[in-house]
Design a binder for these strands. Structure first.
Lengths: 196, 196
DNA sequence: AAATGACCTTGATCCAGATCAAGGCTTCAG
DNA sequence: CTGAAGCCTTGATCTGGATCAAGGTCATTT
């Protein structure tokens, strides 16, 4: 299989492509990590030390509320980023967990390393700006949908736009991501499959 | 009153401060606009042409759903940005409205101008990256709260963290922002004020 | 000063989705 | 092979919040 760091470089090339120096800097300032299923990258109370890029596998980021209930905030599959940006930048303890749902291969960039990449190669400022802008737009859409659509519509949208995830991730987690209980999602699924 | 563009420069100085050349470029590539109450910066179907910085006043961004109901996605007061980033970057028609809730003064940067600022002065890449990262974190928190907290808790949080807005903006809009009906928010308020 | 419209409130009723409880299927560690 | 833990489903019941309807206050316009 391709070298994970090469995959990361290729990912950046989809934005403003990296030159040789930038590529080398990125290789030096990142490191590959393998996770087994249920492995944690981040747990509540820890500082989120890494920007993490998923080369293979699937992770989720979630919070546990006062009643002990989990709330999935984000999934990350191949070629997606996952990080608690707030904790990462402020270097403050996170309230979130990041856990591998499958055995996964990721590339991590630590805080200090990323700052150096930014100042030594401004193109990373640019590329990460664009990456986050895209994530931001997605998140806004999600919040709008959360307020404007029924659970049924939200689930339909999820399946349409993330068929891969819908197949890959247990429904409990999808339910939590959509903001409904697993029981209710199960009923929605029963209803929709009868129709279709 | 201070020159609006100066206020914008001062805003950037809170991140990586601008040098003389950058400041001049910013002045050249932005323009001041005054809005009256109910004035629109953006309407559904239009392309969002500007990154807009609020110097004075208060705006809201919202969507109208299939049933004709408005959903407030964001408020912007003094020293805050408001823009449909998705529409802005893709130069595609927006599904959102941006409307002044009060007579307001804003500074706009158009698409082409912003791109030039980015490429001619990479510091803008940096500063806008940081700005969006902060907005992103806020938005994530909001989505988490939407899924993990009751309407009552969300309203309490809103009042605590945005006392200015709570006083300034009609409750109809706050309700929509929180994802509840105005009637229900009214009942929550009645309940909480009785207690307090 | 009347009239329109924006905003807030309160009551009655309804419903999407939660909660509680139980049973069954799979998968995987021991 | 066996048990236990995940995961999914289905039923019965409950509730946070929506919907519908009406009235009241205030500010702006004419």
């Amino acid at each position: 299989m391709a070298d994970p760091q090469q995959v990361l470089c290729a990912h950046f090339d989809r934005y403003l492509a990296l030159d040789e120096a930038e590529r080398r800097a990125l290789m030096e300032r990142s490191r590959v990590r393998r996770l087994k299923k249920r492995g944690f990258i981040l747990q509540e109370g820890e500082v989120c030390r890494c920007y993490t890029y998923v080369v293979e596998g699937c992770l989720r980021m979630y919070e546990i509320d006062a009643k002990g209930v989990e709330h999935n905030l984000q999934f990350a599959q191949e070629n997606e980023w996952i990080v608690d940006i707030g904790s990462f930048h402020a270097e403050k303890p996170s309230s979130l967990f990041i856990e591998a749902l499958e055995p996964s291969t990721v590339v991590c960039i630590e805080h200090g390393d990323l700052l150096r990449l930014y100042t030594e190669h401004p193109k990373f400022d640019r590329n990460f700006r664009v990456i986050i802008e895209d994530l931001f737009v997605e998140l806004q859409q999600r919040l709008l949908r959360r307020n404007a659509s029924s659970a049924e519509q939200r689930y339909a949208h999820f399946v349409q736009h993330h068929p891969g995830l819908a197949a890959r991730v247990p429904n409990v987690h999808v339910a939590s991501y959509l903001g409904v209980t697993p029981e209710f999602l199960s009923r929605l699924r029963a209803k929709t499959s009868k129709r279709g």
